[in-house]
Design a protein around this nucleic acid. Structure first.
Lengths: 218, 218
DNA sequence: TAGATTGTTAATCGATTAACAATC
DNA sequence: TAGATTGTTAATCGATTAACAATC
């Protein structure tokens, strides 16, 4: 089934293939990819079959063709534009972080209610008044938003985003957001992530820590 | 089985109980907790039974006693000290973020190799030279670290941390870290989190988006 | 051809949920 | 007592892995 974990694997296959490609490799076997990403070869073939990706019996997969298909599925052929609401700690960190641009994700603008944060220096990501969110999102056909505001404001911000046309959200506020079922919400709770580490340190790993490693990111 | 997802549920039960407690409630049924956290009542009782937590047949659970047990399991009775390595975007955001303190997590210090970041203003979290990591961790008996350095430095930083006595790590660098099996590593890859949202927006939700919601954080 | 690898089906594994006896 | 809720066992569900026929 195509769930979040499956997509994360696809993204990792894509990254591994990119590395192999730039090393000059032309073809790859499910086995190699499995090693590179840390899953079984069965898993790799199963994932591909879910997306109708075929290789050559006995001949493995052509890396370039495979990369092309994965890039298409993952939306890597066009730049993906996102907006951030909240120019505080997390919002500012995300704006400065180089990792998004590398993956074809463009942070188009950030919105805040604090005039002290407004900024439109050449080259910088603009930080604009929240009132401009709606028009900006519509004019730029933006579908993805990041919520990086205090808990108390998060639901309101989500509602604004959805009204403006945003379809998917990465939410850093540690609250449960209510949204229509056709809206994708992915929550990242940094405190919770740290608290799980604390638990396993306090209580020892013997109670099967294997699962935390499952989260291994490529 | 006690895995990361189970611990996250426990943390949410704890949060929900805290709210109920401050509203003056004295007892709670598995049903109420299930509603509050968004799981089934069976799941709640199963989780509790895994940790040997018993209620009263017919009478539910005493909130205070239950909170006490969960706080104990989750290490909430003592303040948990952590260090951050990397005072860049993410490290700085984490230091300023108020959410950790509220949950009894104390960021004791941050370490960096860039002297421009060093700082020891009264009241601020000190940013110290990386060379001091080892002594600081040992003297303060710190077991938990956060890696917020560029990918290229992450493995080296992990090795330093482990050598200093750190047992568990929250890692923001998007690479696979190698560590002894008795070390807990929890990876958070912000780019990947956003990329999964992008996938589901591009390809529509019909392919079962249910699972991304599973990540709902309390 | 013989050998190796895919694609898919069946088996396994693990986690969640339902059911229900115990009992307050 | 009758009714409601727990704690636990059994059933279900879903995802991963193993196996193997197809085939290059």
């Amino acid at each position: 089934m195509v769930n979040k974990k499956c997509i994360i694997r696809l993204l990792r296959y894509k990254n591994a293939l990119h590395r192999l490609n730039s090393l000059g490799f032309v073809k790859v076997f499910s086995d190699n990819l499995a090693d590179a990403v840390g899953v079984t070869a069965s898993q790799v073939r199963k994932d591909f079959s879910l997306f109708g990706i075929c290789g050559n019996k006995r001949g493995g997969y052509q890396i370039e063709a495979l990369l092309g298909k994965l890039n298409h599925i993952l939306g890597k052929n066009e730049q993906q534009k996102v907006v951030i609401v909240g120019g505080g700690n997390i919002g500012a960190a995300l704006m400065k972080y180089k990792g998004f641009e590398k993956e074809g994700v463009k942070i188009a603008a950030c919105f805040d209610i604090d005039p002290a944060k407004y900024n439109h220096k050449e080259g910088d990501i603009p930080v604009l008044p929240l009132e401009q969110l709606r028009d900006f999102v519509r004019q730029n056909h933006i579908k993805i938003g990041v919520i990086a505001v205090p808990d108390i404001a998060a639901q309101q911000v989500l509602d604004l985003m959805l009204a403006a046309g945003i379809k998917g959200v990465l939410n850093f506020a540690p609250i449960r957001l209510r949204a229509a079922s056709d809206c994708v919400i992915n929550n990242v709770n940094l405190v919770l992530e740290l608290e799980t580490v604390i638990y396993f340190i306090i209580n020892g790993l013997e109670k099967s820590i294997a699962e935390i490693h499952e989260e291994q990111k490529s």
